[in-house]
Design a binder for these strands. Sequence first.
DNA 1: CTGGATGCAAACTCTTTGCATGCAT
DNA 2: ATGCATGCAAAGAGTTTGCATCCAG
Lengths: 149, 149
Amino acid sequence: MIESEFKRRLRERGLRITPQRIFIHRAFNELGRHATAEEVHARVEPWLPNASLPTVYATLELFEEMGIAHRVAAGSATALWDPRPEAHHHLICRSCGAVEDLDVSIDSFAALRAARRRGFRAESSELIVSGLCQRCQTARHGRHASEPR
Amino acid sequence: MIESEFKRRLRERGLRITPQRIFIHRAFNELGRHATAEEVHARVEPWLPNASLPTVYATLELFEEMGIAHRVAAGSATALWDPRPEAHHHLICRSCGAVEDLDVSIDSFAALRAARRRGFRAESSELIVSGLCQRCQTARHGRHASEPR
DNA sequence: CTGGATGCAAACTCTTTGCATGCAT
DNA sequence: ATGCATGCAAAGAGTTTGCATCCAG
């Protein structure tokens, strides 16, 4: 989402347009894919040296409410936010925790209908494929040391 | 999985058959669905008052390696382990964090094939549908207080 | 016996909260 | 001027690690 549109939507909601929100939005867009709060924070730092991590968290939550960001269901790993508007899915390595995008389309119509029947208001759906990434397959016993989980 | 089979598979791997492993396995099976480590631990307590939470964690991880349990990708919520062997999917309320099973079948063949093409060894796939559960839809602004996230 | 498994306590990471200050409106 | 948003610090939750002890094989 472009910046002017973002500002307009903030105004619509009666929310303040602050430098933090603007720069966090910019950093988030530039990062492109499933970024952690930490990564967003690091990217904002050069522009706003005093920006705090709690503000980044609050702003990412705001983005989620606005539909700009989507928190990726990444198992026990660190929370990831994904800025892509198009539907897509994720591969998650159960050994090292790496997350990759998967650009295939999945027919989740039956699932969404079943959800609605149960009184659940579905907003998005995402396929999580878990297994072992290429690196972890070759590493002994499926887990290479010196890697984040 | 029945207990004798479980013991056999432990032996196969050269792992010890300890009371903790037996009772955690039993508790996990009896709980049935997406249980937290805490819940498993509470269930084991009457049988083994000194069982520790770290042991429960270690054992659930072991179950996952053995293919007995599956860690549910539940966003930022507390980790859940699911004992069901059959493929199924989950509804996750973005407001209160509740997780429900969804028994529909999804054709994820294209996704699994795409994963394999990328060198990823897929072991399981799960559709995560996020949105608002019935309770949170009626609660004001989509979030009822006094509920776990 | 022997080393893998456990219990305990403590550390660690990520995320959220409380509160005084500041700034967008 | 007004009160929402921020920064800082600290708390909180969940999970993992280190190490001495114990017990299954």
